[in-house]
Amino acid sequence: MEKRRGVIRSDLIETLSSLGCRVLKDEPLSMHCSFKIGGPSDFFIEIPNERALSEFLKIISDDRFYMLGGGTNVLFSDDGYRGIIVCLTGDFKEISVSEDKILCGSGALLSDVLKAAYENSLTGLECVAGIPGTVGGAVYGNAGRRDKWISAAVKSVEVYKNLKKELINKEKAGFGYRKSGFENCIISKVVFSLKKDVKNSRLKKISKNMQKRLETQPLNTPNAGSIFKNPDRFSVGKLIEEAGLRGKCAGKAQISGLHGNFIVNTGGAFAEDVLTLINLIKEKIKEKFGISLETEIKIIK
């Protein structure tokens, strides 16, 4: 049975619009994620500042909503989302630099923050070079490489929790492999504490990381990044290759021939195609290696 479609009262739409929010109805989610897959959301709301965010949380506190960053690690259902998708824009994209600190809104693009660090001779964020998406999403999922994560550069995170704004220091953030302790929070701002690059080595590190991603990942085909988390002491990509699954297809979705832990949309793929491949990989890896895989991407229904 299909879930009931969400409804926002017209006066609430007027209130949100007066605060600068952009409210869209039946917005195709395929337009807002790197997979280019997904049906319509009942409502899609762009929130431009903290006042609007605070009011939104008071008004919509009992409604179902999902906070969307850059949409680079999500798979939306073909049926869409019965509720509200929220995207932070405007002030939440701002970036400022003070000595060795960078303060940015959670909606700022990682690439823009990395550029600001480079232009101000700051080092410490090279591990996210080439990773798409926003600061909020990257901090929430502790993005990075196998040996270094964005959490290493985090000083503090401003969040909204239970309608209240809190400042959480790195030590209390609960960072781990591909995770943080912000599951029940909305990240609004992040402060990064970096170091002056006295040896001027940051460009070399950025170029090296970018080149490695270009050579090993299918960046030119719609995808959502790594599908699974790497188990201890194992590379999922190598396990998938050893299981003979590279290149396998379901509809228009395909396990990448370049990197086994990527599933790509070759053109017109459905979420169900991707889920078929995810289940196939889980079954084969469990059968061949006795390893249970955990998905890294968020599957939103």
Rank of each mutant, 00 (worst) to 15 (best):
1 M>S: 06
5 R>Q: 09
5 R>C: 12
6 G>Y: 07
17 S>K: 09
18 S>G: 08
20 G>S: 08
26 D>V: 07
27 E>H: 06
27 E>N: 03
27 E>M: 06
30 S>H: 05
31 M>P: 08
31 M>N: 15
34 S>T: 15
40 P>M: 09
40 P>N: 12
41 S>Y: 11
42 D>I: 11
45 I>H: 11
46 E>M: 10
47 I>K: 03
47 I>F: 03
48 P>M: 01
48 P>F: 03
50 E>L: 15
51 R>Q: 12
52 A>L: 14
54 S>R: 11
58 K>G: 13
59 I>H: 02
59 I>A: 08
60 I>N: 01
60 I>M: 13
62 D>S: 13
64 R>M: 06
67 M>I: 15
67 M>N: 05
70 G>F: 10
71 G>Y: 10
71 G>P: 09
72 T>N: 11
73 N>E: 06
74 V>T: 14
77 S>A: 06
83 G>P: 02
84 I>S: 13
87 C>M: 06
92 F>W: 10
94 E>A: 07
94 E>D: 07
99 E>M: 01
100 D>E: 03
102 I>G: 00
108 A>E: 01
111 S>I: 10
112 D>Q: 13
112 D>R: 14
114 L>Q: 04
116 A>D: 04
119 E>D: 10
121 S>F: 02
123 T>L: 08
125 L>N: 00
129 A>D: 14
132 P>W: 14
138 A>Q: 05
139 V>F: 00
142 N>Q: 07
146 R>D: 05
147 D>N: 09
148 K>S: 13
148 K>A: 08
150 I>L: 15
152 A>W: 05
153 A>R: 07
155 K>V: 08
156 S>E: 15
157 V>R: 05
158 E>R: 14
161 K>I: 03
162 N>P: 02
164 K>R: 09
171 E>L: 08
172 K>V: 02
172 K>F: 13
174 G>W: 13
176 G>V: 00
178 R>M: 07
182 F>E: 01
182 F>D: 00
184 N>R: 11
189 K>G: 04
189 K>S: 11
193 S>A: 15
197 D>F: 01
200 N>I: 01
200 N>D: 02
200 N>G: 01
205 K>N: 01
206 I>A: 07
208 K>S: 04
210 M>T: 06
214 L>Q: 10
216 T>Y: 00
220 N>A: 06
226 S>I: 04
228 F>W: 00
229 K>S: 03
229 K>W: 02
233 R>N: 12
234 F>H: 12
240 I>P: 09
243 A>L: 10
246 R>V: 05
247 G>D: 06
247 G>T: 09
254 Q>M: 13
255 I>A: 02
260 G>W: 00
262 F>H: 04
265 N>C: 06
267 G>P: 15
268 G>Y: 09
269 A>G: 09
271 A>L: 10
272 E>C: 09
272 E>V: 12
273 D>H: 15
274 V>L: 10
275 L>M: 03
277 L>R: 06
278 I>Q: 03
278 I>K: 04
278 I>E: 04
280 L>R: 13
286 K>G: 10
291 I>L: 05
293 L>W: 05
295 T>Q: 04
296 E>M: 08
298 K>N: 14
299 I>N: 02
299 I>R: 03
300 I>S: 05
